[in-house]
Nucleic acid binder design. Structure first.
Length: 400
DNA sequence: TTCCTCTGTCATTCC
DNA sequence: AGGGAATGACAGAGG
């Protein structure tokens, strides 16, 4: 874990004071500085309570389901409609062809700072206007980040609430990284933990995504927050229209958070699972920056490779199982051959004894008849002698 | 604390 | 040339 100093009490102390001053723009900047100074936003080590404690979020019934893009509540009640539009991203991508953009309502962006209101992707998705019929943004729609939205209406009360919620959210999400086995090799942006854990290519780590994400921007601070706590992930699984096992696997993964940090406007599930053609079509619908494009391609590569690795290991285990079965069969066969060899050896021994006995009888008989002694090899050359012996043994075995 | 297993990722090769 | 599959190797998490 990267070092993460305890949250400064000053951070807590300043915001309430600021709340009392409703009309000072300069204090807004100060408030932001305070918010940005909260070390928990770095996604680092903070003493948390329960891993998924969401008690700090207030009434959960007010929460709109997290669709993978994030949802804002809007004071004018447009939030749910937008939520539905966003959720429709979960529907099969090729179900419909995006039509020409129709009238798009301008939505006032006033996040209520519930648990889903912090990631850059989530906010940007909420801000990004979508076609009410197709649920797609207009082709080449510009992607705006949370704090790049010109309609942002941030009140000091919002800031105070956000400050509190951020702390709670971070605590709730603290265990998220622990749930993953991500080695973070390409997590080359300001995820302090990963940067510290990866010892292999420290220089490269600093180079890639660090270039992609400028340091210390509002977008970074919020985009790099940990993923949502388990209760929201569960809700995602319940409401998702595609395979939930895959969803759980992908949602809130580090790639998911990278995508959030970079305001990638579509889910990693789509990035990974779409066929090339559909994937390229999807990309063509948005104007992505080079870093965004690089990240999307990395996510796709990692996702594909992850599945490939799983298949590879599965095949390897199956191959091992087959080979072990073959080994068992070969051992059985070897035992049989060994027993057969022993049996043949015994037969050969018996035959040799019989032959020697017979030879001795013949010699004795010849001596008794006054014939000179001739060794048996004189009658049969050695090779022929052995072959006859073998033939005799074989015929005996066949008869048996 | 150490060891082992599982999993994600990267690098590389091949198709 | 680019994308994907396959796979060895490595590293972190967790039991």
């Amino acid at each position: 874990m990267s070092p993460c100093p305890p949250r400064s009490q000053e951070s807590n102390a300043v915001l309430p004071n600021l709340m009392g001053d409703q009309n000072v723009q300069g204090d807004m900047d100060l408030a932001w500085q305070e918010i940005l100074s909260i070390t928990e936003l770095q996604g680092l080590d903070v003493q948390g309570d329960s891993m998924y404690d969401i008690s700090g979020y207030g009434n959960q019934a007010q929460h709109i389901p997290f669709s993978g893009y994030g949802v804002c509540n809007f004071p004018d009640g447009t939030g749910p409609a937008l939520t539905q539009a966003i959720q429709n991203y979960d529907h099969p991508y090729m179900d419909s062809t995006p039509a020409e953009p129709q009238h798009l309502p301008t939505l006032p962006v006033v996040p209520t700072f519930g648990p889903t209101a912090y990631t850059g992707m989530l906010i940007s998705s909420s801000i990004t206007q979508v076609d009410a019929n197709t649920h797609y943004p207009p082709k080449n729609a510009p992607m705006t980040g949370l704090f790049g939205a010109p309609t942002m209406d941030m009140t000091m009360a919002n800031i105070h609430n956000m400050h509190q919620d951020i702390h709670t959210l971070h605590q709730a999400c603290k265990g998220q990284d622990d749930l993953e086995s991500d080695s973070g090799l390409s997590l080359n942006f300001s995820d302090g933990e990963s940067m510290e854990l990866d010892h292999r290519e420290p220089q490269r780590l600093q180079s890639e995504y660090m270039e992609m994400i400028p340091p210390l921007t509002y977008q970074d601070q919020y985009g790099l927050l940990p993923a949502l706590p388990q209760p929201f992930m569960n809700h995602i699984s319940e409401t998702s229209s595609y395979d939930t096992s895959q969803t759980e696997e992908l949602v809130c993964s580090r790639d998911e958070r990278r995508a959030a940090a970079m305001n990638i406007p579509f889910p990693t599930e789509r990035i990974v699972n779409l066929p090339v053609e559909d994937f390229n079509d999807l990309l063509s619908r948005f104007t992505l920056t080079e870093p965004q494009l690089a990240l999307v391609k990395d996510i796709r590569r990692r996702g594909k490779n992850k599945v490939a690795a799983q298949n590879c290991r599965k095949r390897k285990m199956e191959t091992i199982a087959v080979l072990e079965k073959d080994i068992g069969q070969l051992r059985t066969e070897r035992e049989g051959l060994r027993r057969e060899q022993e049996e043949v050896g015994r037969i050969m021994g018996d035959l040799k004894k019989n032959l020697e006995l017979l030879e001795q009888q013949v010699i004795n008989l010849l001596r008794n008849q006054g014939e000179p002694h001739y060794p048996l090899e004189d009658f049969f050359p050695k090779q022929e002698y052995d072959s006859k012996l073998f033939a005799a043994a074989s015929s005996k075995e066949t008869r048996a």
